[in-house]
Amino acid sequence: MTLVNASPRRKELVRIAARLFVEEGFDRTTVRMLSQAMGIKSGSLFHHFSDKQAILRAVIETGMQHALTLARGSLAEAGCSPEVRLDALARAHLETLLTERNAHVVALYEWRRLDDASRDHLIHLRDAYESLWQKVVDEALEAGLIHGDRLLVRRFLLGALNWTVRWYDPAGPRSPQALAGELLAMLTGRALAAAQTETR
């Protein structure tokens, strides 16, 4: 069962809530602020959501489902090469940050605000996403593409990618694809080795 309703109106309300939670923080965002931004009366808000906690739950679920769908699709097209699969997953993660940035930021910074029931419902999505990453990291380790502790490698990778929401400028000189390539080059040293070969 999913907590996210497919209605276009509800999706729009979730997008507005995600923006407000990023701008103001979950605790400082009031029901009145949400209803004003959504263009509805405070009482009408509860026709769509039972309470503010349900809105937070819907925002985080939206971001997590989007990330999982994008990652699975990218891996399905990536083939069997560990290097290509790692690059595809990094690109998908960065694309998620751009296309569902607010929901992703809320998931990163407001997860602790979820109540126990919401967290228990959503944790399977988080675990599924981390499992995808762990599988691809394990493939890269087994191929000798990268080295290190498997759990730490996954955490470092996701931490570095998630932090791009703080500094990445979509209008800047590097595309998400270029950023993913830079990350892979730093992990494997392959781009550096190729550059050194070309200069000899």
Rank of each mutant, 00 (worst) to 15 (best):
H66S: 06
A107T: 14
R126I: 04
A54C: 09
P82H: 04
H104E: 14
K135W: 04
K52C: 05
L70Y: 09
V105H: 01
A71W: 01
G79Y: 06
L114F: 09
L75A: 03
E61N: 13
E130C: 05
E95W: 12
L68A: 08
A117Y: 07
L70I: 13
R119G: 04
A117T: 13
L114P: 01
A58R: 01
V84I: 09
R57P: 04
P82R: 03
H121V: 07
H124F: 14
E100I: 02
L56D: 00
I123K: 09
A58S: 09
Q134C: 09
E83I: 11
L125M: 06
M64T: 00
T62W: 01
E110C: 08
H121Q: 13
A128R: 00
L97F: 09
A107R: 03
A76R: 07
A71F: 01
S118A: 15
R91S: 03
K135T: 15
V59L: 04
V106A: 02
D120W: 13
A92I: 12
A128H: 00
L114V: 05
E61T: 13
D115S: 05
Y129T: 03
A54T: 09
T69Y: 12
V136Y: 01
I123D: 10
D120V: 11
H104N: 11
A90S: 15
L122K: 00
H104W: 12
H93L: 09
V59C: 03
E61K: 08
R112V: 08
H121C: 08
D116E: 12
E130K: 07
A54H: 05
D120G: 14
E83S: 10
K135R: 15
H93V: 03
A88D: 03
A107Y: 05
T69C: 10
V136T: 12
L94D: 07
S118M: 05
A88S: 15
G73T: 07
K52D: 07
H124R: 14
D120M: 10
L70H: 15
E110Y: 08
V105K: 01
A54E: 08
T99E: 15
L98C: 11
P82Q: 03
R126H: 14
R101G: 04
E110K: 05
S118V: 05
L56R: 00
S81P: 04
R119P: 04
L114E: 02
W111K: 00
V84L: 15
I123A: 10
I60V: 11
E95I: 05
S131F: 12
A88I: 06
A90Y: 13
A67K: 02
A103Y: 10
A67L: 10
E61D: 10
H121P: 05
S131P: 02
T96Q: 15
L97T: 03
S131I: 06
E100F: 11
L89H: 06
V84N: 12
L70F: 09
T96R: 13
L108M: 10
L98V: 14
L98Q: 15
G79D: 04
L122V: 02
L98G: 14
I55H: 07
V136R: 00
E139C: 01
L56I: 03
W111R: 01
R119E: 09
G73I: 06
A92K: 06
R113M: 15
R57W: 05
Q134D: 10
D87M: 10
W133C: 02
Q65F: 06
H93I: 02
D116P: 03
A58N: 06
A67D: 06
L68R: 11
E83M: 08
D116C: 04
L108Q: 14
L122G: 00
E130N: 11
A88K: 02
V136H: 02
W133G: 00
Q65G: 11
